[in-house]
């Protein structure tokens, strides 16, 4: 609501702290419902697919042993009983133990989360910086060959399958050029108690190829969004006004245009980050990156249900948090939102 006071005293400032807290709490509360729904769906889905016991037992197992295994995993109970048990345990934070690894499923997923987050964050960084830079260049030279080349490139980036790109990266940069190692995660370093492979040179060398592969689609998307946003903004009145005031082109671009372009971009980037985490599966498989994605693929293959459920719950939670952060960032960047 526009401020109508022509007299003294400012209008209401940005959202007050207790209000923000309330908002966060409400959003987190909604996520609990989401988690519940998700767990039910996954349970049903995995139950319907097939029988994990067949895939687990040794070739020489006898009937009795097969039956015992089934009982040990509670797979001989009716579905509702199994789900009920699961819920009861989940309230204590126990999402069961992996059928395969016999480790607590949640701990297993969380232990792999660090590697996936590293990958997703690196990919996000690459996609955002490269995407915004190239998108701005494309907007400024939209009729020239640079602009057109960048846009054509972005279409390629959107349509090339991750799998193919990954293998190509491996062949080109690891095999032929020998610049980067082909597989795995590098050594981790410790900073403020957080262990991450981003803190060592060896770790950085290992992450370049998988992060670039994962970032490709997002980079292309960011280029296109930035370009179209920037083209629109460049033609807007306030850019003309900024020029009329004699501001340097650099300032106009980096402060006025970029800020305006960033606001809608933030929302997209936030959603994309969630997507990067969830869809790192293919990249992790190709580069043998020890993250959650590889874990879930392996688990789905052998129907390790506790891990599948735990993974999906963690993903849902991550998505909720990311969306929340994006919303808060949005309100921070655009003073027009949330002023009531």
């Amino acid at each position: 609501m526009p401020c109508r006071s022509a007299g003294p005293g400012p209008c209401s400032p940005s959202p007050s702290e207790p209000r923000v807290l309330l908002y966060v709490v409400r959003r987190l509360g909604q996520s609990v419902l989401l988690l519940l729904a998700m767990s039910m769906i996954v349970f049903l889905a995995v139950y319907a697919i097939g029988d994990p016991v067949e895939l687990l037992v040794s070739p020489q197992a006898t009937q009795a042993e097969i039956a015992a295994t089934r009982a040990a995993f509670g797979l001989d109970q009716p579905l509702t009983t199994q789900y009920g048990l699961f819920l009861a345990n989940a309230l204590h934070g126990d999402l069961g133990r992996s059928f395969i690894f016999h480790e607590p499923a949640l701990a297993l997923v969380v232990s792999r989360m660090g590697a996936t987050l590293e990958l997703a964050l690196s990919a996000l960084l690459i996609a955002t910086t490269l995407g915004i830079a190239l998108g701005l260049i494309a907007a400024l030279h939209s009729d020239g060959w640079i602009g057109r080349a960048i846009m054509s490139g972005s279409i390629l980036g959107l349509s090339l399958p991750t799998f193919w790109v990954g293998i190509l990266m491996l062949l080109c940069f690891s095999l032929w050029l020998g610049w980067f190692p082909a597989i795995g995660r590098g050594r981790t370093g410790d900073v403020f108690g957080i262990a991450s492979s981003l803190f060592t040179l060896d770790g950085l060398r290992h992450i370049v190829l998988p992060a670039s592969t994962l970032a490709l689609g997002n980079t292309a998307l960011t280029i296109r969004l930035t370009r179209s946003g920037a083209v629109e903004v460049l033609q807007s009145e306030f850019v003309k006004y900024a020029r009329a005031r004699g501001l340097a082109p650099r300032r106009i671009l980096m402060v006025h245009v970029l800020r305006a372009v960033l606001i809608p971009l933030i929302t997209i980037v936030g959603i994309e980050f969630g997507g990067l985490i969830a869809f790192s599966v293919v990249t992790e498989t190709i580069f043998a990156w020890p993250g959650m994605g590889k874990l879930i693929i392996d688990s789905i293959y052998v129907l390790d249900r506790p891990v599948i459920v735990a993974y999906l719950m963690v993903i849902v939670f991550l998505f909720v948090v990311i969306n929340l952060v994006v919303d808060l960032l949005y309100r921070l960047l655009d003073p027009r939102i949330g002023a009531n």
């Binding site: 020998g178 190692p181 082909a182 597989i183 498989t285 190709i286 043998a288």
Partner: peptide
């Protein structure tokens, strides 16, 4: 002992000297 599910990646890693 490194687990690499994709045979193509395994081979590339061998060829590039990582394995």
């Amino acid at each position: 002992l490194k687990a690499i599910a994709q045979p193509e990646t395994r081979l590339i890693a061998l060829m590039s000297g990582d394995l």
